[in-house]
């Protein structure tokens, strides 16, 4: 499966990764080779095999429904660029 320049830019945008045009050109090659490898894997007959959701052969442990965490707002907000009235401030979100 071939990948194109525009696909790389779109993937970068979705992941909010800033790429220059030149960098994107480099990734067209790299990603195409990865996808070729995936194509090889696709050749294996997987009929009747359950997809693997997790590499560990274990199931999810459950937690009792208890409040164990208490406010550490000051500590968490110490590393935030801007806060006010207990809120994190972010560049204006336009709906």
């Amino acid at each position: 499966m071939a990948i194109e320049h525009a696909d790389v830019l779109r993937a970068a945008h979705l992941a909010r990764v800033g790429l220059s045009d030149d960098e994107a050109t480099g990734y067209v090659d790299d990603l195409s080779r990865i996808l070729e490898m995936v194509d090889q894997l696709q050749a294996v007959d997987t009929q009747g095999i359950t997809p693997l959701a997790h590499p560990l052969d274990a199931t999810q442990r459950l937690r009792p429904d208890e409040v164990t965490e208490h406010s550490q707002r000051e500590r968490f907000q110490a590393c935030a660029p801007a806060t006010e009235d207990g809120l994190y401030l972010v560049p204006r979100v336009v709906e």
Binding site: E69, F76, G86
Partner: peptide, 16 residues
Amino acid sequence: GASTAFGADPNTQACA
């Protein structure tokens, strides 16, 4: 394990 109670002060029930 953070509380889900409604109406608390902002960000006092948001843990790591």
